[in-house]
């Protein structure tokens, strides 16, 4: 019942949602000569650095490292941007919260959607690299939205919880930025799963981002449709995060205005 009401509230405020996303986009690309192109260029430049470091210097044994890296790192960057944005979204909207009544979940949701738009731009970088390196396109590339959807839903759940907590404990922001770096190293983004010791491989099944990155590489790189079981695991983890994050947010949202 409350979920239904919340959904109706959000629907009514979709124009606000659209406006906030546009505002963020304008802010991000204002005064930069290359504009939106940066969303494409940034992952590509990053890829050059990582390829040089990991493929040439550390000699990580992966076929077609640039594509391997790019398919994983763009998805992880999406998670990072979405959760970090959502975390600061409530405290960042203090002036609005104090002045009008709006469904408070608009703010984290907006940041996750904004990050999704940026993820789409960065997928252009992936396409460019496929073309440049002669990587074949499989039909499954059209399923790119699948890992994005899982990651987005998962990030929204994490973001809702972080947004609530950061209202009361501002230093969560600093802790999380460190945690995010650790999390990326704990996820096979820069190196392949096979490079991990077996004991750690066994732990990987508990890392949602491991699953989402795997699925992204399956559909983008390898032309494999993930198994029903794999998809169920992905969706289950996303829904669990969403339920937990929403519960935390709902429990705390009435007190936000007193602390921002």
């Amino acid at each position: 019942m409350r979920t239904k009401e919340a959904a109706a509230g959000l629907l009514r405020y979709r124009f606000l949602l659209a406006n906030l996303i546009l505002k963020d986009l304008r802010l991000k690309y204002r005064r930069s000569v290359l504009g939106v192109l940066w969303s494409v260029l940034n992952p590509l430049l990053m890829m050059l650095v990582m390829t040089a470091v990991f493929s040439r210097i550390f000699r990580v044994a992966v076929e077609n490292y640039p594509v391997f890296y790019l398919t994983g790192s763009t998805l992880f960057a999406f998670l990072g941007e979405a959760t970090t944005g959502a975390m600061g979204s409530v405290t960042g909207s203090a002036s609005l919260l104090r002045k009008v009544r709006v469904p408070k979940s608009v703010f984290p949701l907006e940041k996750v959607l904004f990050a999704s738009v940026n993820y789409l731009f960065s997928l252009v970088a992936v396409v460019v690299m496929f073309v440049v390196l002669g990587q074949p396109f499989h039909w499954t590339f059209a399923l790119f939205w699948l890992p994005a959807l899982f990651t987005g839903a998962f990030a929204l759940g994490v973001g809702l919880a972080l947004a609530s907590l950061s209202v009361f404990f501002r230093d969560i922001v600093h802790l999380y930025s460190v945690l995010l770096v650790a999390w990326q190293f704990a996820t096979p983004v820069l190196y392949p799963y096979e490079a991990l010791p077996e004991s750690i491989q066994a732990l990987m099944i508990w890392n949602p981002m491991y699953h989402y990155v795997q699925v992204a590489r399956m559909v983008l790189m390898h032309g494999i449709v993930p198994s029903a079981k794999e998809m169920a695991v992905c969706a289950g983890m996303a829904l669990a995060a969403l339920a937990l994050g929403a519960a935390v947010f709902r429990a705390k949202r009435d007190r936000f205005v007193l602390y921002v």
């Binding site: 009514r12 405020y13 979709r14 124009f15 606000l16 659209a18 406006n19 609005l96 009008v100």
Partner: peptide, 15 residues
């Protein structure tokens, strides 16, 4: 005007 209208919960069409 549009931004403020959105904040008050009005739709694009209404505005």
């Amino acid at each position: 005007i549009f931004l403020n209208g959105a904040v008050l919960g009005h739709s694009k069409r209404e505005m």
